[in-house]
């Protein structure tokens, strides 16, 4: 099990109802973590979601380590 912190933005923040949460999980990759949270929250269908770990973009297969800070990134719309 690893302890991680998750921050939600925009459409995901509103859906989950909070910006941050601390979680202890058996997930070993960020993809598994997303699947676990999707089970709990039933995330809305928003298209292609990316993921960042410790403020850098990562693949969904990236390993999850104790203390990681994870952000799921729904489609962006700057400008």
């Amino acid at each position: 099990m690893v302890a991680v912190q998750i921050e939600y933005f925009a459409v995901l923040r509103e859906h989950v109802g909070r910006a941050r949460e601390d979680l202890t999980t058996a997930a070993t990759t960020v993809g598994q973590l997303y699947a676990e949270l999707d089970q709990r929250y039933a995330f809305p269908e928003v298209g292609r979601v990316k993921v960042a770990v410790n403020d850098e973009f990562r693949d969904w297969t990236a390993p999850l380590k104790d203390g990681d800070f994870v952000v799921f990134i729904p489609p962006v719309a700057g400008g």
Binding site: F9, V11, V46, P74, V76, A77, G78, G79
Partner: peptide, 27 residues
């Protein structure tokens, strides 16, 4: 910047509703 930087835009409409741009996906 528009396509890559993690920035999200919520539009508030004249009818009173709102939506996150690029995140409202129909099946």
């Amino acid at each position: 910047v528009k396509s890559r930087v993690p920035i999200w835009k919520k539009e508030h409409y004249a009818e009173g509703d709102s939506g996150w741009i690029n995140c409202e996906v129909r099946p």
